[in-house]
Amino acid sequence: MMVFILNINPDSQSIAYIDQVMENFTNVYNLPFKREIRFVVHELVINAIEAMEKIEPYSKKAIQVHVYHSNEEIKITVIDEAKGIAEYDWDKVLQFDLNELDYSDRGRGLFFVKNMVDHIWFENISETKFLVGISKKIHI
């Protein structure tokens, strides 16, 4: 079993850092679904950074990335210090309507994440802490 927690700043350098960490991690442990796992973490971190920028553009608060890896599955959670997604919108953000496609860069990430993992969940930890979690069976 492997567990690690990273506290990263909500900035673009942190995106590059977490991408590199996850690339190294998936390669060292020779995980299946390497590209999917890296994409999922990349998207979740970008979403957390964007959420925090909307609240406090120059916040010194950190984003926590928790990775839990066993022989059966990988679980990843990303906790930001922004308001998060309202509970009544949780189902809506996991859907994507091609009829509403405007070719903007954003807005599709959680839909793709949902389709790359076995389970995705959200949790309002507090008024200012929001968690997005995923799990994926890896059967090594």
Rank of each mutant, 00 (worst) to 15 (best):
K83S: 05
F96P: 08
I76C: 08
A51I: 01
V65C: 14
H139E: 06
F112D: 02
I15V: 12
A51N: 08
S126R: 14
D105K: 15
N71P: 06
Y29M: 12
N24H: 08
S14V: 00
V93Q: 15
I37K: 11
A16P: 06
V93W: 14
T77F: 02
L6Y: 05
Y29T: 05
T128D: 07
K129N: 06
F130S: 09
K129W: 05
M52D: 00
I5A: 10
E100W: 03
I140P: 11
S12H: 05
I49D: 09
K92L: 08
S126A: 02
D89E: 12
N124T: 05
Q95F: 00
K83P: 04
Y17G: 01
N9R: 13
E23Y: 04
E72V: 00
R106W: 04
E100H: 10
E123L: 15
W90C: 10
D118V: 05
K34E: 01
M116K: 15
S59K: 13
N99W: 04
F112H: 04
N99A: 07
I79A: 11
E50W: 06
V65E: 09
M2E: 02
D97Y: 08
S59R: 14
V21E: 03
E50S: 09
F122N: 08
I134R: 14
I74H: 15
A48R: 11
R38W: 02
Y29W: 13
K83A: 05
N47S: 10
D105F: 11
F4Y: 11
R108V: 01
V93L: 13
K137N: 05
V40H: 01
L98V: 01
D80T: 01
A86K: 12
Q13F: 04
I15R: 15
A82E: 03
A82G: 13
I85Y: 14
N27K: 15
I140R: 15
A48E: 01
E50F: 03
V65G: 11
F96V: 04
K61D: 04
I18E: 00
Q64D: 03
R108K: 14
H69N: 10
Q95N: 08
I76V: 14
I46A: 09
H42W: 05
Q13D: 07
M52L: 10
A82W: 06
R108G: 08
K136A: 07
D105H: 12
L6I: 00
M52Y: 02
E36K: 14
L110P: 09
T26G: 09
K75L: 02
V67C: 13
I85A: 14
N47D: 09
S59Q: 08
M22C: 09
R106G: 03
I37P: 05
D19T: 02
I46D: 06
N124D: 07
Q13T: 07
R106C: 03
D80F: 04
V40D: 01
N115C: 10
L101N: 12
F39D: 00
P10D: 00
V117A: 11
R108C: 05
S14P: 06
K92A: 06
Y68P: 06
Q64Y: 06
K34G: 00
V45Q: 06
D102H: 12
V41D: 13
